[in-house]
Amino acid sequence: MKSLLLIASHAPWSGLAARETLDIALAGGAFDLPVSMLWQGEGVYQLLAGQQPDILQQKNLQSQLSGLPLFGIEQLYVCSESLQQRNLLPEQLALEVQLVSKSEIRQLLATHAQTLVL
């Protein structure tokens, strides 16, 4: 089976892209496919704990995020440089993810058969 690296690079409430990227991951998990996820750029805000999307009449991403491990999607990565640039600490994230450097991201890109960025 071909492995897929999904890159989430959209801010959580900037439209449907965050949700529709997670939907692809969850569908892959439902079919037992090897799917990994990497959050980078504005996408790291998707992981931030304690958000109040109800103020924007939006649904929390939390149910989708916590569904990832339940669907067998356990290779979860976040770009550490993107966190630093936004003054975010790993402790502030709502999901257990692995911090990766730029060179580790290059490795992720090289070791996955396919990459998809919405």
């Binding site: 071909k2 897929l4 692809i24 569908a27 892959g28 439902a30 396919q114 998809l116």
Partner: peptide, 23 residues
């Protein structure tokens, strides 16, 4: 149809090409 069709097609193709917008 569902996203399962996307995964199935990505698994079986020799080449997958994504055309994405500016969004």
């Amino acid at each position: 149809s569902g996203l399962g069709q996307l995964h199935e097609a990505m698994q079986s193709a020799n080449r997958v090409v994504h055309f994405k917008g500016d969004a």
